[in-house]
Amino acid sequence: MFQILSDVFIDNPLIVSFALVGITMYIAYFMSDKLTKGRIHGSAIAIILGLILAYAGGVWTGGEKGISDISIFAGIGLMGGGMLRDFAIVSTAFGANFDEIKKAGFSGVASLFIGVVLSFVVGVAIAFAFGYTDAVSLTTIGAGTATYIVGPVTGAAIGASSTVITISIAAGLVKSILTMVGTPFIAKYIGLNNPRSAMVYGGLIGTTSGVAGGLAATDPKLVPYGAVTATFYTGLGCLMGPSVLFLVTKAIIG
């Protein structure tokens, strides 16, 4: 009996994920309403529940893809994977206002460059404080602090050790997760309530999943503005990491 049920789940992965996400959201909105009286938004709680499931899945299977490493929940990997995520992000542009994007264009672009350099410098400084002194390791950890994709791309390009690359990925993951969870709580203190600050936010933080998740839990109307800049960040980081940022770090460290 259990075998049959498990087979049905395994044969219809995407459908299982719709049901599972729906149930998770129902629980999250229920908790938001009853336990926090709506003060903490339902989607913020749902994202936290998702991360807890991911942690449980990771510990259970030792895999890298959270809950979707458990075979009956493999569909979560499809639903939350890059393809549908990007499709849904693009679709949010349906509600965006082009005039707002144009108006915030300059501060959006400026925030991209500042964001990449800022995260990089923070990462390098902290790696240095933890005892790393060679330019290759420092650059890789700094790049990982930008996003968990920039870290390994940079590390591979300049020949970092796999331990350092792993740390750089972990730093990027921490950033992404904290952004998802923290954005709705910090939003009102940093004026994150209009298209322009959302574009600046996307450019500064840059982790697409973090920004997209964090803004979704803050105010879904802000998502397209944050996402439109954030999606350039990883590209810019991959461009600057192994080149300009590495050379500058090398020149300073020697």
Binding site: V21, I47, A54, G58, G66, I67, G80, T145, A170
Partner: peptide, 27 residues
């Protein structure tokens, strides 16, 4: 979009982020 973001969060390598050690978390 929001349901997909929640599926995405359930897909993250949270265990690795926490296993990355204090340097990764602090950075």
């Amino acid at each position: 979009y929001i349901p997909i973001v929640i599926a995405m969060s359930a897909n993250q390598n949270v265990a690795a982020a926490l296993d990355g050690g204090p340097l990764a978390v602090v950075a």
